[in-house]
């Protein structure tokens, strides 16, 4: 049941990320809500849920933007699984922890995706990354709150 709820949240966050209003973009860059959702799922429910969120998030985001799925799957599923291993550690159930992990994870995910599809010009990519990481980290807190509430309500894993 919790996985179904995660799926619905991921669909909603993918649609919001892809239609982020122009006036909220910073240098044409919006937040990576799907990455924040995967991290939240991992922190709240463990590596299996994190990997599941990575699988679904990558499929939804990759399909919506007509991207190659291989690199996106690898980056997001690895992110969800690794972050899931942090579940149960000190502060893992605190929203600022989700923000900190997102701040670190967004550049790592983008670097992994970079290996699969290199940009023609690295300068805008670096600028976008510098904006996307803190922007996503800031919005990771409400995203985490949503996932945390759902997990407590439906408790997918012991």
């Amino acid at each position: 049941m919790a996985y179904l709820a995660y799926l619905v949240l991921l669909v909603l966050l993918t649609a919001i990320e892809r239609t982020w209003p122009g006036w909220l973009l910073i240098y044409d860059q919006g937040p990576q809500l799907v990455a924040a959702a995967i991290i939240s799922a991992g922190l709240c429910a463990g590596p299996v849920a994190g990997c599941f969120a990575g699988l679904i998030g990558a499929l939804l985001l990759g399909s919506a933007e007509s991207a190659w799925l291989g690199g996106t799957f690898f980056a997001y599923m690895a992110l969800g699984t690794v972050v899931g291993l942090l579940r149960g550690t000190l502060l893992a159930e605190r929203a600022p922890m989700a923000a900190l992990v997102t701040l670190a994870a967004v550049p790592i995910v983008e670097i992994i995706r970079l290996i699969f599809a290199a940009p023609p010009n690295p300068a805008p990519w670096v600028l976008q990354l510098l904006i996307a990481a803190p922007y996503s980290a800031l919005l990771a807190m409400p995203v985490f709150a949503g996932f945390h509430w759902l997990t407590r309500l439906l408790a997918p894993e012991p």
Partner: peptide, 11 residues
């Protein structure tokens, strides 16, 4: 530094 004992991971 673990707050609670984490369950074994199901791979």
């Amino acid at each position: 530094m673990r707050a609670t004992h984490a369950p074994a991971v199901r791979w």
